[in-house]
Simulated scan of single mutants.
Amino acid sequence: MSRSNRHSLAIGLTSVLVLATGCAPAWAQETDHAAHHPAAKPAASPSSPRPADPHAGHLPTSPDKSSDDHGTMNHGNMRHGAANPADSEHTGMDHSTMDHSTMDHSTMDHSGMDHSGMDHSGMDHSGMDHSGMDHASMGHQPGVSEDLPPTAEPREPIPVVTPTDRAAAFPDLDEHLMHGESINSYWALDRLEAWDADEDGTGMAWEAQGWVGSDLNRLWLRSEGERAGGSTESADVEVLYGRAIARWWDAVAGVRHDFAFGGGPSRTYAALGVIGLAPYKFEVSATAYLGESGQLGVGAEAEYEMLFTNRLIGQWLVEGEAWSKDDPAVGIGSGLSKVEAGFRLRYEFHRQFAPYVGVVWERAYGGTADLRRAASGDVDDTRIVAGVRIWF
């Protein structure tokens, strides 16, 4: 080989070495991502020089090599959010259109990656295998809040409730605080009804009650009676003192007087009983009576109201009486005297005024039934009633 040829060859080798030395770092740091940019970069402005393409010479030479094999890629030195373009050309990369479903992350090292500038909104992770990823070095600790260390106590621990706290929350209230001292009253004509009697013409009946007083102490008045054929067959009135003994219960004590009609005598009894609201909203009244001659009687009544609408209300009623001795003068026999049951359906045009219709069944038992048979009366009776309920 001639001297001139050897000289030219030396110059060419030297140039190759210089170029290789200058490009080697960039070659080691960059990976061919040309296949991840389907759209070409916009053309540079004619007035500004075109920047050098760091990926020049790295484009694939055939379509078969257009996709990278990320399974063996090392992202340890990559900084996707680097501010200096010289550190990495991945600054501002948009991964939203990249399909990582076929990537195998099991061999990838993410310990040095900075994902602060990456957009993963469009990435498909359904096919990615994260089983080999080291989340501890990435700062991801499942189930642990980022604001608190794993072993930190709650910022505001719930204090233990002490007996002193309970006593302060539920202080003992005296009578003046528990019960109002104002005087109130309630008067109700629960039933004022009429029916068509077969033999005696029109029948009528009433039941009324009311009270006046405070929440703790009340004066009760009760009355009921019945008329048939234009004459009063029975009527009584009770005057009772009531004292609240529980949240929904009053104990009552007083006097009952039965008026004399049809030539019979009147009767007066001492009364002792309870009035209240039983569980499941049954209104209950039970009273024991002690007569002048040692006659002992018990009367009980229970009512239950069923709301079909806010104004259409059905009322169920059952009541009964029992006496210890026969008293033929007033038509009472020993044992269970009578039982009455009925259903009344009322419509409250106004809360204080409600007409109703209903059906009532009554039957006499024991000695009372015998006395009615002797007087040619009916032992049992069923009637359709219509009436009105008023309170104020």
Rank of each mutant, 00 (worst) to 15 (best):
P265V: 08
P265W: 08
S266L: 12
T268F: 13
Y269S: 14
Y269H: 14
A270Y: 03
A271G: 12
G273A: 13
G273L: 12
V274Y: 13
I275D: 12
G276I: 09
L277R: 11
A278F: 12
Y280G: 10
Y280P: 14
E283W: 04
A286G: 14
T287S: 15
T287Y: 15
T287Q: 15
A288Q: 11
Y289C: 13
Y289A: 10
G291F: 04
S293N: 15
G294N: 05
G294T: 12
G294E: 00
Q295N: 13
L296H: 13
V298T: 14
V298C: 06
A300F: 13
A300I: 12
A300T: 15
A300P: 13
E301G: 14
E301M: 12
A302K: 09
A302F: 07
E303M: 04
E303I: 01
Y304F: 01
E305C: 02
E305D: 07
E305T: 00
L307P: 08
L307Y: 04
F308L: 01
F308Y: 09
F308S: 03
F308D: 00
T309S: 02
L312P: 06
L312E: 04
L312F: 11
G314R: 00
G314M: 00
Q315E: 04
Q315V: 03
L317W: 02
L317K: 10
E319Y: 06
G320F: 02
A322G: 13
A322W: 06
W323A: 13
W323I: 11
S324H: 01
K325A: 03
K325W: 04
K325F: 05
D326I: 05
D327V: 00
P328L: 00
V330S: 01
V330T: 03
I332Y: 05
S334M: 06
S334W: 06
G335L: 01
G335K: 04
L336V: 03
L336K: 02
S337D: 14
K338F: 09
V339K: 11
V339R: 08
E340T: 05
A341T: 02
G342M: 13
G342C: 11
F343C: 04
R344M: 08
R344V: 03
L345I: 12
R346L: 05
R346K: 10
Y347N: 05
Y347R: 01
Y347C: 03
E348T: 05
F349S: 09
H350P: 03
Q352Y: 02
F353V: 12
A354Q: 03
A354R: 00
A354L: 03
P355L: 06
V357T: 13
V357S: 10
V357A: 14
G358M: 06
G358K: 05
V359G: 10
V359T: 14
V360Y: 13
W361E: 09
W361F: 15
W361P: 11
E362V: 14
E362M: 15
R363G: 11
R363P: 09
A364M: 10
A364V: 10
A364P: 02
A364I: 04
A364D: 12
A364E: 02
G366V: 01
G366R: 00
G366P: 07
G367W: 00
G367H: 01
